[in-house]
Design a protein around this nucleic acid. Structure first.
Lengths: 145, 145
DNA sequence: GTTCGTGCAAACGGTTTGCAACAAT
DNA sequence: ATTGTTGCAAACCGTTTGCACGAAC
């Protein structure tokens, strides 16, 4: 199955070889990679891929709704193939980020702030991870919610 | 009144001239300055202050509980003299950040995540600001909550 | 005299930009 | 022809580090 090509075509992104390679790796990256992480992963597969192209492609994915981009910790932004609403837990010891399903935090359905037009909101939760859970496994990137 | 000196002494920070200058400016900075913003502000007052010292001092303030440090948007961390719990609204057009009082969002008193030891949590709200409010005025940095 | 605080410049890491070549329309 | 895509290197910007000097303990 050429799922990645289909995902790109659905979003009117021309499925070039480079973009297929980026997509192929990114859409299964549930470890909240930075752009530089993605460059590393991709260099292993396709050694002469360009840093600039990876950055461009990730930004393109964000623009087209195939990725979300979050500033959660100092020193760089992370990209997430899960675009449905969810929260993030940041382990202060390891620096690892875990997805937290939206309804685990009992938030009000909408947030009304006089003077502000709210587009999006999410929790950033910090602390320490205690047990191994499946916290980061969430494969509903482009379908759910 | 030498309020700044007292704040520092209370936290066992030796109130050197440099730190007084940083504190004097920082403790009234309710505009969510980056470290580099603080360097600029301080260079106006005290032109030969060192970049490294400003960075060091801000980190010291964070460590001593006089500042909070947040990654809210790409391209750098911001420092906030308001250390009591509150949320942040990020205006996507202007890039400006506004403090949102804790109880404006009706959050549950605590968040229970099996497998995680929750230390801190807060909302990041994005959108557009519509009206001028006093959203960013909140002078209860070291006292409230 | 050992640690702490400061300034300066260089280094560093993540990201963006400029440019040249090529492919698709 | 014009636009879109890619790679490469250089530039850029926020932050950290190394070092030297002076002040405080």
């Amino acid at each position: 199955m050429h799922e990645t090509a289909q995902i790109l075509r659905d979003k009117k992104i021309r499925p070039t070889l480079t973009r297929l390679a980026v997509g192929e790796v990114f859409f299964k990256s549930f470890d909240h990679p930075s752009a530089e992480d993605m460059v590393s992963k991709l260099k292993k597969v396709s050694p002469c891929i360009s840093r600039a192209t990876v950055y461009n492609t990730l930004e393109l994915f964000v623009k087209k709704g195939l990725a979300s981009k979050r500033a959660l910790k100092a020193g760089g932004v992370i990209y997430d193939p899960v675009v449905s609403p969810h929260h993030h837990f940041l382990d202060k010891e390891s620096g690892k980020i875990y997805d937290i399903p939206w309804d685990l935090a009992k938030l009000p359905g909408k947030i009304d702030l006089p003077g502000f037009e709210v587009e999006d909101y999410y929790l950033v939760i910090t602390g320490k991870k205690t047990r191994r859970t499946n916290g980061t496994q969430q494969k509903n990137g482009r379908n759910a919610q």
